[in-house]
Amino acid sequence: MDAAVNNLRGAAQGLDLSRVQAISLDLDDTLWPVWPTIERAEQALAGWLAQHAPATARLVGDAQALRAIRVRMQTLRPDLKLDLSALRRESIRMALTQAGDDPALAEPAFEHFFDHRQRVDLFDGVHETLQFLSQRYTVVALSNGNADVQRVGIGQYFSASLSAPSLGVAKPDARMFEMAADAAGVAPQALLHVGDDAALDVRGARRAGLQAVWFNPLREGWPYPAEPGPQAEVTSLAALRRLWG
């Protein structure tokens, strides 16, 4: 991204709002910080295992041990690489089996984890921004992850919620953005994508023919690391709303 855009955070440098007929939004690290959420969910899972599968709880005594099992599961089941829920569930099942506990406990254990995974701390202004956008455009959630907008409590703002597991492709694959445009009922050139990841969200969207806004709240001051760059960069959801004046 050139210096002019980098210095005009939140300014619509190159952004043509007259083209925009629909919005697609990333979820994790765009509407909430994801890693604190995952850490709390893993702590909740550890507590559940301690109560219902103590041998497994001892085997995976910390989050790092369970993550190591998940890395091994990724190697064993490459077919699950796009489905984070299935990958997590089968990793829990592997841990249960290795510890000698009932592998059927993987289902309720995962549901406990997944329930806590939806308990996110929204960034400031999420409801105001989603209401602002949804009153003007069709809004589609577009995520590589497994957040559920209904369970998070923001589903009312979205006409569709698309994820890598449901589509069989993941950002930055152009097909994912094309499917988002199709879900919104517009051509890709009329879809504006907003996301935090420079490669997955911005470069992927631009290469698929979309306009893109880089949501960059946690790394303010970093230069844009990939090309093609975004039409605009914002460091808050309030700044995103200000793109419309």
Rank of each mutant, 00 (worst) to 15 (best):
D173W: 10
A22D: 07
R206S: 01
S24A: 04
V194I: 15
L45H: 06
F123W: 12
A109W: 07
D28W: 10
G185I: 10
H116N: 14
R58E: 14
L15W: 05
W32G: 06
P228A: 07
N7W: 10
P54I: 04
G153E: 02
R40T: 13
S161M: 00
L8V: 12
R70A: 13
T30N: 10
N144Y: 02
A22S: 06
A181G: 00
G195F: 08
N146H: 00
D201W: 02
Y137T: 09
V194K: 09
A198G: 10
S24E: 01
V20E: 00
D124Q: 11
N216H: 09
P36C: 08
W35A: 14
E178L: 02
L240I: 07
R206G: 00
A41P: 05
D26W: 02
L49K: 05
M1Q: 05
A181E: 01
K171A: 09
A41D: 03
R9E: 15
L45I: 11
V60M: 13
L82A: 05
Q150A: 13
Q51F: 00
D26Y: 03
S163V: 01
P36L: 06
D2V: 00
F114L: 10
L87K: 06
P217Q: 07
P78M: 15
H116G: 09
L31Y: 05
F132G: 02
T56P: 02
D121M: 12
R203Y: 10
G153H: 01
D148E: 11
G14D: 02
Y224M: 04
E90T: 09
L240W: 07
G61Q: 15
R151W: 03
G155W: 13
A11Y: 15
V60K: 11
R203I: 12
T30P: 09
R9D: 15
E128W: 05
E233D: 09
A104G: 07
A226R: 01
E42I: 10
K81H: 15
R207K: 06
R175S: 01
L87F: 06
I23T: 03
G209C: 00
L200G: 11
Q118R: 05
Q64C: 08
G221R: 11
A57P: 03
E227L: 11
E39A: 14
L27D: 02
D197K: 13
A238I: 05
A86Y: 07
A212I: 03
F110H: 15
A174G: 01
A65E: 13
A50S: 10
A141T: 03
Q64W: 11
P78I: 15
E233Q: 13
